[in-house]
Amino acid sequence: MAAYIIRRVLIMLLLLLLLTLIVFVLFSLLPADVARLTCGKICTDQTIELNRIRLGLDKSVFEQYWLFLSALFVGRTYGIGDGAIVCEAPCLGWSFTKSEPVLELILQRLPTTIFLALGAFVLFLVGGVLLGVYSALKRGGWQDRTITSVALIGYSLPSFFFGLVVIYFVIIRWQVLPFPQYEHPWDDPVQFLQTMILPWLVLAILYAAFYTRLTRSQMLETLGEDYIRTARAKGLPERTVIRKHALRAGLTPIVTAAGLDLAGLLGGAIILEAVFSLPGLGGLAISSVVNPDQAILVGITLVTATFIIVANLIVDILYAVIDPRVRVA
């Protein structure tokens, strides 16, 4: 088991390294002239050239990559002399449009995005699994049919449209909730919850519908397994058969799916922030496109991709904890 985890972690580190390379090369292939973009209002050919040198853009892509990578561990100084800008380790680049380290900018906004994604994650996972299990246990009954139909509707809702409709009714028409004004939970927990509840619901609803259906079908399949019959033949009470034997096997594929969806959810959260005007990574990303800042975009891409890779690692390890057959492989 320990060997398995160590191997997975090593693979993950390698993957992360590869990721930085790919992202870096991809962005350097873009036709945008970063030196021109970062030179500000009074722009002469001379300042552009100076910028180019200051940013290291005159060097080859691989030298630039090396500078970028080493900055993560030892920091980096842009330019020389009085005008030099120092970006301390871990340095994920420098934003010349905002005159701040990219990492700083991302860390300021990351919590909002993570709260949004995680809250929705917990909501859809708990909701979907509970409804799915209940539906499977009541197979064919009216409860099952109701849940299955509602899930089907939820599954086909376009979530942004739905988000806008919800805002219109809940906030503007009925005024059940105040207009969203994000505060961090440690500053004003009530305001935080009031602001987040709608985006959570909107983000979670599609996944909840999907997980209800997935859980239901997984449970039904598991309940038909031979080892469930064995558990009953032993004389176990039905409660234990479900809890100890069926749930563990039936929910294992859910773990995999959920881990992968957590990553996708982060993307969904970034987009949904615009609808609910939440100060997360989404706003930062959009402003860096409108007012081009490649360093920020590289940073955001790397941070989100890192989350996806780490989520995958956690899924793999969880899977091995649950299913002993995986550990040998």
Binding site: D226, Y227, R229, T230, A233, R248, I322, D323, P324, R325
Partner: peptide, 15 residues
Amino acid sequence: MAMIFQDPLSSLHPF
């Protein structure tokens, strides 16, 4: 009363 089944692999819980 007790019972044994045809396929012992699928009849034992894999986990």
